[in-house]
């Protein structure tokens, strides 16, 4: 047996241990990138091999919480891919403005940069009074950071540039206070955000959403889990609700490709089809 095949067994065993011991389910994550992250875990916990880490996963009640942040990928920026936010501002929010109440679900919010971007967008488009954002993630550590709304000041320069490219109406500094080397976002942005733990691998529908953002999460899932998540989004959306995926994510290889119409192909914005609506 080749070394990489032995490593594959180690990944299987670790994933099984994490699931059965701690309830974290990475069994249907895309294997190639998961394998790289699992390989990085062993040295991070002082182990020579992934096999050595497995007994600790089984016997240390705290280890699950420490491992999960390293296996999920919490990289995001405020207004990441600014043209996407511009498109949401120009093409989606004006249509959502007709609803008296709005639910927006950001699935996989990580440390929250995008949630606050969305909150700013809603405020500038005059929708924040009637909109509620549900920001969910499986990673408790990232969720806690997201709820805090404090980001390293050095990142704000890029965030500000993104904000302006996304059609921002002020300067981003309008929405934060610099404190030493950190930027604290205006706490009032948080008033209509609920942060909650939700697992796309095991949890179900919890709200009726008008817009779902799930960007650069599905690339970490295999076909099975990706289809589960997309079904869940479909079931959560109101009639003709919108869904925004990552710039390189598509429905082309999923089971729901017929269930959504394309609103903006370049920025991966889709709209739930009406029952019986003809496919183009």
């Amino acid at each position: 047996m080749k070394d990489f095949e032995i490593q594959d067994i180690e990944v299987d065993l670790l994933v099984e241990a994490l699931y059965r011991r701690h309830g974290y389910d990475f069994r249907n994550y895309a294997r190639a990138s998961l394998k790289r992250r699992v390989a990085d875990l062993a040295p991070a916990f002082g182990c020579a091999t992934v096999s050595e880490l497995i007994p600790r996963v089984l016997h240390d009640p705290e280890l699950g919480r420490q491992i999960v942040p390293k296996l999920s990928v919490p990289v995001t920026d405020m207004f990441r891919d600014p043209p996407v936010f511009l498109s949401l501002r120009r093409r989606v929010l004006p249509l959502l403005a007709s609803y008296p109440r709005l639910n927006i679900w950001q699935a996989g919010c990580a440390s929250g940069e995008e949630v606050y971007s969305l909150a700013i967008l809603l405020r500038e488009e005059g929708l924040s009074e009637r909109a509620h954002i549900y920001a969910t993630d499986i990673n408790d550590v990232a969720l806690a950071r997201a709820e805090e709304g404090v980001f390293p000041l050095r990142l704000l320069k890029d965030f500000s540039t993104n904000y302006l490219k996304a059609g921002g109406q002020h300067s981003l500094s309008h929405y934060y206070h610099a404190q030493y080397d950190h930027a604290r976002l205006d706490p009032s942005l948080r008033e209509n955000i609920t942060f909650a733990r939700h697992n796309l691998a095991s949890d179900g529908v919890f709200c009726e959403a008008h817009l779902i953002l799930c960007r650069n999460v599905l690339i970490y899932f295999d076909h099975v889990l990706q289809n589960r998540a997309l079904r869940l989004f479909h079931d959560s959306l109101v009639r003709q609700g919108f869904m925004c995926l990552g710039n390189r994510e598509s429905l082309q290889f999923s089971e729901v490709v017929e269930d959504f119409a394309v609103t903006d192909h370049e920025h991966r914005i889709f709209r739930k089809r009406l029952l019986g609506e003809p496919t183009p």
Binding site: A30, A32, S33, I219, Y220, R248
Partner: peptide, 21 residues
């Protein structure tokens, strides 16, 4: 490979992308 993303090949010979470090 798309700029900004790692490109990987899965065992079933499909492509996978990641934003890992």
């Amino acid at each position: 490979a798309p700029p900004g993303y790692h490109l990987l090949i899965e065992r079933d010979l499909t492509f996978a992308l990641s934003l890992d470090a």
